[in-house]
Design a protein around this nucleic acid. Sequence first.
DNA 1: TTGTATGCGTTATCAT
DNA 2: ATGATAACGCATACAA
Lengths: 362, 362
Amino acid sequence: MTKTTALAPPPHDHKAAIARDGRRVTSYDVALVAGVSQSAVSRCFKPGASVSKSTYARVMKAAAGLDYIPNAAARSLITRRSNTVGVIISNRVNLYYPEALAELSAQITRHGKRPLLFTLEREADVGELLPDVWQYQVDGVIAAASLSDGQLDEFARRDVPLVLFNRAARGQSVHAVLCDQQEASRLLVTRLAAAGHRQFALIDGPEDSTIARERRLGACERLAELGLPAPLVVRGHFDYDSGARGLRELIAQLGRVPDAIICGSDLMAIGCLDYARHELGLQVPGQLSVAGFDAVDSSGWLSYNLTTLRQPIAQMALAAADMLETLIQQRDTAPERRVFGAQLIAGATARLRPLHDETLAA
Amino acid sequence: MTKTTALAPPPHDHKAAIARDGRRVTSYDVALVAGVSQSAVSRCFKPGASVSKSTYARVMKAAAGLDYIPNAAARSLITRRSNTVGVIISNRVNLYYPEALAELSAQITRHGKRPLLFTLEREADVGELLPDVWQYQVDGVIAAASLSDGQLDEFARRDVPLVLFNRAARGQSVHAVLCDQQEASRLLVTRLAAAGHRQFALIDGPEDSTIARERRLGACERLAELGLPAPLVVRGHFDYDSGARGLRELIAQLGRVPDAIICGSDLMAIGCLDYARHELGLQVPGQLSVAGFDAVDSSGWLSYNLTTLRQPIAQMALAAADMLETLIQQRDTAPERRVFGAQLIAGATARLRPLHDETLAA
DNA sequence: TTGTATGCGTTATCAT
DNA sequence: ATGATAACGCATACAA
């Protein structure tokens, strides 16, 4: 006796199959109803497959009747594609640049994948969630968080495509999308110096932020090149309160108000600005110039009109998603860094000379 | 002469297995190295399984040596759990309440799951991405978007646990976490009326927003109850620019400045405020009271100190994640609505009478 | 074009 | 406690 095809489920009334016994509707159910083989059903759901018009119609009709949807877990087991992209992002990034995640998500979706979110309280926690990244078999990862060399190696070893988003990459060995923070900082210092500012101060970001570090370095270097005194630096946490606190500290340490304060983020700049105007009664930019970074929405509001630098987040997200997709399709793509420039938003919180000085930026 | 492994790290035989031929490391590999059966390996990675201390040690050692991580796709195929939670959220919510996603993600992670993100350009697009939700076999869904009755039914039919986040639920038949927008609005009107405001105006949210609708309804109802004239209503899109535009429209239609403007969001309130002060030179709250909704970070800044209503987003996210987890574990849990109250932040942009009037809020 | 048979990597069942 | 074996639901090589 040959095997009676016991594979097929018992002759249910298929319409009710879903509710019946909690069993899922599978391609076998559809095959049975459509009167074709399971593989035929499978082919109907694969874009480029060869199926006759008539069977396709029968299968699709049966599938619709049964509310059949292919099971992604089973599919990814065999195709080795989960159609999922891991997005590693710190809460700080998420809160301060909500557009970043929104744009990344949109772009990932555009490639027919879904973002699986890995959020971090602190960037240092990245190590703890990497095992989960491996578990979930994501097709690739976009990381808006700092990874150690060892962690980068693990991505390579496990052959998981990775694109860094706005994080310093180790040399040229990893795909990355960046905004040139250092150059942006230099540009800002150049413009401020050209307008006559001499005594600079910095309200820096937190120690563990590489972006803050680069912004500080760019400013310090450029000041040195221009023969201006090194700036007084105090540290903040990128948030509004840090701006006011930073200004207080600066004045305490300096004994007076500096000519210009460069803040590591717009929120700190706004906090600084509010404190200067409302608590200290200072004229900005009359007695003090204040500049920020990021061009967040609120920096453009009438109450502020902040002098700041805009990172092209949407473009960067597009670039990151495209790079990752390419890398997923073609894993031996050579590492590439795409570096975007920041755009100076002149605003009205810093004294700047007219645009013909732009040549100095070079 | 054997292969000269130039680049390769120290010759761990097994360590190299990953790179070897692109084959994944499976539980069989681990079993082979540990000298046990594949099922033994599997048990070692299941929390409550019965494994002897010695085999557990051997297996774990082998697993570590091979960098073995269980494959979630294969696991979910048999367990019927993907350890994944779908989060359906519109870009609007994401941009205006970045905390919402951050908190939801944190809470979902706390339950050992990961959020799979489904973002919407417009809330109406929800139907298009539902098929994907089914595909990916998420264990449950938290939806911060409006679902039609038909869509709600489909969740029930497919037996996918669902919790609505800050969206009106149809009757009591669906799990939901809400903030009582209507009551919040009523409270605000009550307090403003008690302070002597008579001519109210609303800068409403967009038409497709149920939250905006409830806020408007609450205000209108309460005004009617108090015997005050119905407010003039103009529509905005929750953003900063809508605030200024709204104020212009109101003045144009009214011929004068109203006593109080209730805005459907803080951003609109801030836009309205900025325009009133900086463009029209109005005293707020001297000549005009302005109030918002949401208590976004910027509403507390020195330049604004906005009168607004805070939704307990973090608590709501916690509640939503907990409800969903319960529902996943116990699918026949009775539908529950958890309704949170909003907290009035008095601020300084609206004339309010002291706190003993609070009793009026009831 | 279609069907048969096999495998993806794991968990679950059932002996031992 | 451990091992053999059968699912899980799909895609694919191969035969027809």
